[in-house]
Design a protein around this nucleic acid. Sequence first.
DNA 1: GACAATTTCTAACATTGTTAGAAATTGTAG
DNA 2: CTACAATTTCTAACAATGTTAGAAATTGTC
Lengths: 213, 213
Amino acid sequence: MLEIVETPILTRREREKIQLRQAILDATQAIAAKEGWQAVTTRKVAEKIEYSLPTLYEYFENKAALLAELNREGYRQLLAVLQQARKNAPTPTRAVLDGAQAYCNFAWQHRELYEVMHGLSGVVLETNSYHTEAQALTNEAQTALEDWACAEGIQVQNASALNDAVQILRALLHGLASLALAKQIIGGKKVAAALALRAIEDQLEAWRTKKSL
Amino acid sequence: MLEIVETPILTRREREKIQLRQAILDATQAIAAKEGWQAVTTRKVAEKIEYSLPTLYEYFENKAALLAELNREGYRQLLAVLQQARKNAPTPTRAVLDGAQAYCNFAWQHRELYEVMHGLSGVVLETNSYHTEAQALTNEAQTALEDWACAEGIQVQNASALNDAVQILRALLHGLASLALAKQIIGGKKVAAALALRAIEDQLEAWRTKKSL
DNA sequence: GACAATTTCTAACATTGTTAGAAATTGTAG
DNA sequence: CTACAATTTCTAACAATGTTAGAAATTGTC
């Protein structure tokens, strides 16, 4: 699974550039976390990194590109969280349920990343938000569900059926998470997470009964 | 169900004011429908109604208030659509499923309203988005599900259980609808609607099996 | 140490939400 | 019909934000 990365022989300058680029990303995320995406302005980011405004544009083509990078970063972090959950789970069923729990926790704990991943809270995404990282997340979910189906002796008709099943679970999680973040779930995040687990258990049971996804 | 509205004896001027206010709302929605919410600017709205910019502010305190009104309008229209679906359904089960179908159709056909209702596509909602109209929608859904439970001989433990069940179904629909609108569902709207119906049928079956919500 | 390349900054511009105050319109009374 | 008052609408600005041109400063190289 781990890929070999090219040995990075970088000059001090190149290292500094990478660090500054990362500082911009961190500052942006920090402002969004503390004050919301509405408050993220290029000038505030520049002020936070203690550089002048145009410096930002040496590192990112524009504000949208900056948000797009954080969008991808969110997918990377969520992927890591889900992989970890699956790795630690004792059974394939628990892998699915713990993954769902981890998904909710991620949305609560990294609200600003979750928002930029889904264009919430005033974030505007460019139309092309179907990137490699999103695909990797789908793959992870498909693997977890395929493992579950296999362990339960449930045959997966074809790739499309597996994909459909994953999208149902994902929609449930995203629906509950985004409604909870918008304060539209009575009882808040705690109830939303509990509902997610209940509904997913019900869906798994339905697939068991049908012996098919 | 129909409420008596106070007999409106209005002067010509008052009627014109109401019409202009509605024209502003219509113009805003039209721009959002054609070019997206990102393109909705106060000047464009003013130009469309052929009035100068400050006139808008005689009718709405600010842009946010204008969007808030369309937010509520979206909830009103969705409520009407769901009431109609339930009224026309031959059975309580079909009432639930047809309601789900109607929900999806509303999201596809009035994308801009669905977006402003949920703060998608760059729309920023004020924190207080839990208005009367949202409550009325929840009530409608609860009634439909309560009817279904009653017809199926399923006991509803308490109001909280009914509420939870409704929120699960709503989250499923909203998750699929918003992911589909964000072009994150392979197969698009058609597949998303089909998945919604399948998943809801599975959830209803789970409740039947448990004989409890 | 001088010159070229790169990095960073100052100062602007365009767009957008918003508002003050002038101008125009409308309603009213003589 | 006319003069005045209230209301409506507009012109012209302001502040905030994303973005960029071009100058200044810094860095690397011979």
